[in-house]
């Protein structure tokens, strides 16, 4: 992933979690439960690192501007748009992608029609799974508000919200 004309240079003040190598930053982080060491160009976005270098293309690019949420991953247990994260910022972090979520758990989402074309779906599922794992947030937020960072153009959202209610066993998730 060279940048032939960019003046990629590096930081000479190496830190605990970063070192420099050929104009790149060497970082370590936990990815889907496994330690990863990789040298990244400072300009790399986490989304591109995951998709093009770490063979995890489940996260999608829908807009490249943090609106659609198709690239959602969790970083240190919080949802984030991986298109807006410079990869070097995840040094020392715990990153989870769609690939970490067991397929067998997704049956409720299948049954309600939470996916149609599937392009927004990985991001939807990552956010949904995070809500499922942190259902206390439903005390202060509706499912529809929590899912608002994941744009879907196919389902009209009902299939997603219904599936999520079924998945987390919460009968009233949508509008209160």
């Amino acid at each position: 992933m060279g940048f032939a004309t960019s003046q990629s240079s590096m930081n000479h003040q190496s830190t605990q979690s970063s070192a420099t190598l050929n104009g790149t930053i060497a970082i370590r982080f936990t990815l889907n439960g496994r330690e990863v060491e990789i040298a990244v160009d400072p300009t790399e976005r986490l989304l591109d690192t995951l998709r093009y270098r770490l063979n995890l293309p489940g996260s999608k690019e829908g807009c490249g501007e943090g609106e659609c949420g198709a690239c959602t991953v969790t970083i240190d247990d919080l949802p984030a748009n991986s298109c807006l994260v410079p990869t070097f910022q995840v040094r020392g972090c715990n990153v989870r992608t769609i690939e970490s979520i067991p397929t067998s758990s997704l049956q409720p989402m299948l049954e309600t029609g939470a996916t149609q074309c599937g392009a927004c779906t990985p991001g939807v599922v990552v956010t949904a799974n995070w809500i499922k794992e942190h259902s206390s947030v439903l005390a202060s937020h509706t499912l529809r508000a929590l899912m608002a960072g994941n744009l879907c153009r196919c389902t009209g959202y009902d299939g997603i919200i219904d599936g999520l209610e079924k998945w987390i066993g919460n009968p009233k998730g949508g509008r209160p």
Partner: peptide, 16 residues
Amino acid sequence: EGLSKLSGAERYLDDE
């Protein structure tokens, strides 16, 4: 192909 899409396994053109 629902589970393949939900689990992120579906491969669109730019995923390959």
